[in-house]
Structures are given as C-alpha cells and as structure tokens.
Write a protein that binds this DNA or RNA. Structure first.
Length: 366
DNA sequence: CCGAAAGTACCTAGATAAGT
DNA sequence: ACTTATCTAGGTACTTTCGG
C-alpha cells in the first residue's frame, strides 16, 4: 500500500539538486518515500530522471559534479534507502509530515487492539478445527490494516496465504469462517485482477468519530497514536513471521497450532498456564504442544518454564524432518514471490531497525 | 478489433490428522 | 479403530489488460 509522497518530499523530488546540497535533498525524498511505504523499486525507477535524486547519479568534485558509475549509483541509493527506512521506523517521522496521521494511527491501533483482545479472550476458538488458520489470517489482516492505516484492506487469498504460511484455499475458507462469525466483513468483492477488500471493523466503529478539532476531551501526548501503531505492528509482524515457517506446516511438520504456540513464546521463560491462556487452549493441550516443540528442539524446558534458545532453530528442525523449503516452493508456485519478497524485505528492515521505545521481544529470525 | 496472457475465485478429489 | 472434517493441489471459468 503505497501512499503519495508527503509535500516536503514531493517538492524535494522536483528540486534542482545539482546546485545545492544534493545529499540533503536526496535524504528528504527518501525519508518521505519510506514513510509513505514506497518500496526500493519505486524510488529506483525514478533514479535516472528525477532532479531531486541528483546525488545518486553524480558526486561533487570541488565545484562541479561528476557522474557515478552504474554500480556505484545503485549502491549509493541502496545504502541511503536502507538508512531512511530504519530512520523512519525508529523515529515516527510521519507525525511532522501529516497532521492527520497521528489521529488515524490512533484509531487503527485502538481497533486492532480491541480485535486482538477479543480474540485472545475467545478461548477455544483458535485451537479446534480450522481455528489455527483462522487466527493467522486474522493477525495478517491486522498487520495489513496497521500498515495501510485503514481498517479495510485489499487482500487476495494468495498474498494472505503466503504471509500466513498456509495454503491459498485454506486462507480462503478461513476468511469465510471469520466473516461468518462476525470478526471481519467483505467490503468489496474481487474485481478482475484486484482481490477482494476485507475490513477488521465490521460495524464501522472507526468512521463514526472523525478527527474533530473540538473532541480534545482526552488529551494524548503527540505521537502516542503513531507510537502505539508502531509497537503493535512490531508485535504482530513478529508473531506472523515466527509462525509462518516450514516447520509448522502439515504432515511431518508440527502443524499450524504449534506454530501459533511458538509465536507466543520468547527467550524469557513462561509458565504452562501463561502459554495456555495466550493460545486459548487447555493446559493439557498446551503441554502436549510445548512438549512437541521442545522435542523438535525449538524450545527449551527447565524448571523456570519454556523459552526459546538464543538462536532460532526452526530451520534446522525443519531440515531434520525433511520439510525444509516447503513454503518457498509454494511461493514459487504462486509466482508472486518477487512482489512479496520486496514487501517482506522492507518489513524485515523495519523489524531490524533500532527501537525507540522499550525493547519488547526479539523478532525471531534475521 | 481480436486473441493471448495474467490474475482471481470456485470446485473437486485425495490424503492426513483430530475427535469419539 | 472408525468417522469426520480439514488441508492441499490441480483444474476450470471469468475478468481485465496488453500487444499485434
């Protein structure tokens, strides 16, 4: 979901950068593009022509500018882009660019938090039958909604399936089940090459209180909404990244529910009851799942409880079961890997960026 | 203007795991 | 041990876009 550039950055993109400080102009463009969730390919497509990207094409030699080589230009852009993405992730720069952003981020973060709270309270809904797949799809929809800063998002079944680490048909039926139970609603059917639109706000709760200037009854510090959105995004992205893995596929794999269980653990030890409550399972079922995860070598069990080892062992475990690479094969089949890969790399750059707030839990694998 | 290509949803059949 | 239902892959039909 790429948004238009903020005004400052759009102006910088058209600025004749050769005469002034070209690197500063480039920085203004990249920051805005990263905040608007552009991808590297989007900005790279403009590198040859846009006046504001002069710094990519040439470098300053005393009072003149000399052209860079093709490879050097690409590496300059890649390096600066990486820096910009990390900067935006750590500093919540969007607040300054877009005065409505904080309020919108606050609304969507509150909605996602409500959905997650309600889901966590629905014990048993996510452990039986298609429940594990349902919960993954719900979490992915929450992430997409946070990214788009909108409760309604376009979500075709393939993209959803790949992000959730499940099959496309499974994702489709999960959507139907979630809709039937009132967790989500389809706002627009599929239209040719475009997927259907779904909302995690079936009753339209978000749009009722608009960003009214007089509704300042609850004073919140500036940037609170943006910060909460960032924090939720980090938590939920880590969760789906942890769960979507070959090890948690079917057959000799440990299954979807085991993946969801693993995604709720961290390197800090947890008690059985905590884990059981997180996934809404009975203590006996949770115990069985934790034992299987421990047996596979991805969790450690001692008298303080269950925790993850310092290094992620999911891939090693999958390899020893002979199911390494399943998800990648599936992605290959769906033939949209290239597209998804770009999104995912931006997301990982986000995840690995230095955190401004207190460190939560570590993202699983780098 | 027409056909090819690409992307999506829906349907069906087989395999596998969970529940009783 | 048996029944049920869930997941997955393959195939089909429909729509839009693009190139000759």
């Amino acid at each position: 979901p790429r948004r238009p550039l903020p005004r400052v950055s759009a102006a910088a993109l058209d600025e004749a950068a050769a005469s002034g400080d070209a690197s500063a102009v480039l920085w203004r463009v990249l920051i805005g593009a990263a905040a608007a969730r552009w991808r590297h390919a989007d900005i790279a497509a403009l590198a040859d022509t846009a006046p504001g990207l002069e710094h990519v094409r040439t470098y300053r030699d005393r009072s003149t500018r000399r052209p860079r080589g093709r490879g050097e230009a690409a590496s300059v852009l890649a390096r600066q882009w990486d820096k910009a993405v990390k900067y935006v992730a750590s500093a919540d720069r969007q607040i300054g660019d877009d005065p409505t952003f904080d309020a919108r981020a606050d609304a969507i973060a509150a909605r996602v938090r409500a959905v997650q709270t309600r889901a966590d309270a629905a014990a048993g809904r996510w452990t039986r039958g298609g429940g594990p797949a349902d919960r993954r799809v719900l979490d992915v929809l929450c992430v997409l909604a946070l990214q788009a800063v909108s409760a309604a998002v376009e979500a075709d079944t393939r993209r959803l399936a790949l992000l959730a680490g499940i099959g496309r048909e499974t994702a489709r039926t999960a959507l139907l089940r979630l809709a039937e139970d009132g967790w989500i609603t389809q706002t627009r059917p599929a239209d040719g090459p475009h997927g259907a639109h779904w909302t995690i706000d079936p009753h339209g709760l978000i749009h009722t209180p608009p960003t009214d200037s007089r509704s300042q009854a609850v004073p919140r510090p500036a940037g609170a909404g943006a910060a909460e959105r960032t924090s939720l995004l980090a938590t939920l992205t880590a969760r789906i990244t942890d769960a979507a893995h070959d090890l948690f596929s079917l057959s000799p794999g440990l299954g979807h529910l085991a993946g969801n269980t693993y995604s709720r653990t961290s390197t800090d030890p947890q008690q059985l009851d905590d884990v059981a409550r997180c996934i809404g399972a009975s203590p006996a079922q949770a115990r069985w799942l934790l034992d299987r995860l421990t047996e596979a070598g991805v969790l450690i069990h001692d008298r303080r409880g269950w925790r993850r080892p310092a290094h992620d062992r999911r891939t090693a475990a999958a390899r020893s079961l002979g199911i390494d690479g399943r998800l990648a094969e599936r992605a290959e089949r769906y033939r949209i890997e290239r597209e998804l890969w770009a999104w995912w790399q931006a997301e990982e750059a986000w995840m690995n960026a230095p955190k401004r707030t207190a460190p939560t839990r570590r993202p699983g694998r780098g």
